[in-house]
Design a protein around this nucleic acid. Structure first.
Lengths: 174, 174
DNA sequence: CACAAAAGTTAGGTACACCAAACAATATGA
DNA sequence: TCATATTGTTTGGTGTACCTAACTTTTGTG
């Protein structure tokens, strides 16, 4: 199990869509990979050969494609990065579906594992902490939409926040 | 002023370091660009030619290099993306300097302007809102370090938060 | 089974982004 | 000023990643 000699963005994309196709159809086919990546089928063969050399997929010419254990491991971490980033863009920054998807798609190759972990922790904390959570996010959304920076309603907001916390005291999170 | 036909990551990097060098030394020189980008000087010339063709830098062989108005405009948006992302990684996710710098460097090419704006708004809101701010961030840091998910101290935390807000009532933010 | 359609591969070509090494221009300082 | 060091460019080459078009294999259908 050699140290995975870091992949190009392109090869990471191949692994990600192969994982998706495996989940959809049990196996991946070159045509579907091309279609999902928005490239020509002729371009796929070369990528597959690279992945075979790196022992990340099981594949022989004219046959279908599956991930090796190592390939699946990598594909899952990339897919997770994508999911975490999109979640943040969508739920916290409140970007629309298309913008979030596009940005996540390009960011997933740029962030290291530590940063992803930290982002997961942050988003989780943000949603679970009584001082923030859905209500706070909603306040941020309202603020973003209205464009005003007034903290007028803060006292009420904080009281409300505290009341909610007391109601839920001791109730564990799902 | 034609629509800037989106640049490669590589050319964006050239613009960014040229802006940095202009700020440091008034003008940029090929050698310093190479050094900052960690590439060989011979590789720089080609990049500079591309940027000249796109009217983003003023440059002739053997002369020094400056940004055109359009080049400066683009360089500044990239530099700002870098700064905003690093700020988030550093101050909110509490990553260390090197990790934040490296991730920001790679992410800056992946995010669109809307997402950057939203991230700026979010970070600003997070720091200014009485329900969050430095104290909340500190609580997140403690939580991250300790690894526990208990909300035991929430009541006290919220009281504290409310008290602080009442003290500062009406005081505008700097 | 045979043959057409679908899927996949190969071959040749483009563009980008880098390298190393040879070469050219400029700058410095004795 | 002139030799040399520094800086910058050119050339030829590598690797990646894509394209199109021609070709091959597989598959499905009568």
């Amino acid at each position: 199990m050699q140290k995975s000699a870091q992949l190009s963005e392109s090869l990471e994309d191949y692994l990600e869509v192969i994982l998706g196709l495996e989940r959809e159809n049990k196996v991946a086919r070159a045509k579907d990979i091309a279609q999902k990546l928005g490239i020509q089928p002729g371009s796929v063969t070369g990528g597959l050969k690279s992945l075979v050399e790196k022992n990340l997929i099981n594949y022989e010419p004219y046959s279908f494609i599956t991930l090796t254990a190592e390939g699946a491991r990598i594909a899952k971490t990339i897919t997770r990065r994508h999911r975490v980033l999109k979640d943040f863009l969508l739920k916290v920054l409140q970007l629309d579906e298309d913008t979030a998807e596009a940005a996540a798609c390009r960011m997933e190759h740029a962030v290291d594992e530590l940063s992803v972990e930290r982002l997961v922790d942050f988003v989780e904390y943000l949603f679970e902490c009584p001082r923030t959570g859905d209500a706070w996010i909603q306040a941020f959304v309202d603020y973003t939409r209205s464009g005003k920076k007034s903290w007028e309603k803060c006292a009420a907001c904080l009281d409300d926040c505290r009341d909610r916390h007391q109601e839920n005291r001791g109730v564990p999170h799902s």
